[in-house]
Amino acid sequence: MVIGVNHSAHQEASMAASEGKGPKPKEQLKVTVTFPISPEGPFHAEKESDTAVGAVRGEAMTFFAIAGDGQHAYYLTHSSRRVDDGVALESVAGNAKAVKFTLVKELIQG
């Protein structure tokens, strides 16, 4: 006779997390994006820590009513440094629970 313990997947994940095993639980990060020359803003959102910066940039551009075009590059900076769209928020935030970006519009000069 086999006496089993019927844990649900959720319970197992919780146990693994509590024992320091398994994937790190996703955290919510407060995100702020400023675009200084806009009369609107800043843009605020709460995002899961593994959200790509590009997703935040896209939502911020919508908030600031900016449409992309071929003449300009739009990207986010953090501490004056450009952050690529593919980077996860948690990589920028480190241990912080909030992260602030600036939206930059750069003229592509030929």
Binding site: P36, I37, T77, R81
Partner: peptide
């Protein structure tokens, strides 16, 4: 057009952040 001086928001902050970004990146 799109390069016109915006004259909206905090233009001083915008210029300062442009310069800081350029010197950094």
């Amino acid at each position: 057009g799109p390069e016109a001086w915006p004259a909206t928001g905090n233009c001083l902050l915008w210029v300062v952040e442009q310069l800081l970004h350029d010197i950094t990146d």
